[in-house]
Design a protein around this nucleic acid. Sequence first.
DNA 1: AAAATGAACCTTACAGTGTAAGTTGTCAAG
DNA 2: CTTGACAACTTACACTGTAAGGTTCATTTT
Lengths: 219, 219
Amino acid sequence: MDSSIKKERPRGRLSREMIEDAAFEVIEREGLAGFSMRKLAADLGCEAMSIYHHFPSQAHLHEALVDRLIGSLEMPDAGLPWRQRMHIAMHDFRRIGREHPAFAPFLVTYRMNSPTCLTWLSDILGLFEAGGFGPELSARLFRTVGYYLMGAILDETAGYAKGPSAATTVSDEQLARDFPNVAAAGRYFGAAEFDRTFDLGLDMLLDEMERALGGANSR
Amino acid sequence: MDSSIKKERPRGRLSREMIEDAAFEVIEREGLAGFSMRKLAADLGCEAMSIYHHFPSQAHLHEALVDRLIGSLEMPDAGLPWRQRMHIAMHDFRRIGREHPAFAPFLVTYRMNSPTCLTWLSDILGLFEAGGFGPELSARLFRTVGYYLMGAILDETAGYAKGPSAATTVSDEQLARDFPNVAAAGRYFGAAEFDRTFDLGLDMLLDEMERALGGANSR
DNA sequence: AAAATGAACCTTACAGTGTAAGTTGTCAAG
DNA sequence: CTTGACAACTTACACTGTAAGGTTCATTTT
């Protein structure tokens, strides 16, 4: 058996899909800032520059990862009520963020303009419009839930994105003494409460949207 | 007028405040990713390593910038009604983000745990509690508006944070043809609509919170 | 005045980064 | 077998954060 250190991998066996798969792994293992083309290459058993044959730059690779994630999303069953469909779509997006916590900051910061992403965006806008909102309100409400979603994903994945704060941190004792209400709130800030907290805010927004719809209809 | 490239600057004239001021400038000029200790030093007229006498690392410096911004926030007048105070506090935070658009991604991603930041966080939590919410709901509603705020700031400053997308972009014609509803929504996604859109979502959340309060009181 | 102290700043060096440019290896078509 | 095309590798460059150690200068002590 061949015993070279690098995995035996004949030429011509590198593909975009393989590279993307490995990139997700390296990012989650090393963190987004710790990711590099050389580490990715080491994972793939090739040299860094070989990757450039498939992606013209690291930025292109990162954007391809976004495309992969967004492209994997499916719109909820059109037979369901509007509110339920919106609820599902929001949870779907949140899920792909949480499944790739180290990549999540890039995902939510990225300004979508690829066909794949625009399709998703268009579908979500269409969901609002199908719910009875006009073009303007659909756009603004999309932003509203989008903002909420972005912030939630960032918070819920923040523990993975960067290590502990470098600068002065406040000890638990000092926190309990000087900021008792923050210490008390900490109980509801933990990962165990993410689902409940997320749904609270999401339902508040959806409640208010339905109210706006009902008000317009009954008027 | 003196035209030396580096500012004349006798020893002992470097201070944390000066460095922070220059760092804000360099970050806004070069972008967060384009920022470096050497560029900062060039701006200050010193060598890169001199900065390490005042900040032990770049991360410490960045966190000091967050502290500066958060520390500059003042709580709204306690005599005002609860809802108005919350509205002002949210707009204040949004303002410091928008005043430093390139730095905003770090600001909103940063997990606050310095005394300065904890003081602000405690004050906001106190604002909910003063409004009549118990500890648990105060914590969860803080998260809710916090998520919304983070997302809004990220979106509103995204144009400054990074250059145009590196990968395939969809042309305006293609957008109008293949994604007409997205193209139509673009009208409401521009900077001119930021204020109106932000207030729409914020007011929805505050409406819903007041409703929760009223419901609890009238029950 | 002279010497000592210590902070403030600079110089050098290293391991790491993205990626441009040029080179090599491999396989398929002629 | 030769030729071509292309995938992968090698080298090189300009840049990064920062560790280690050297230099300069204001202040304090003698």
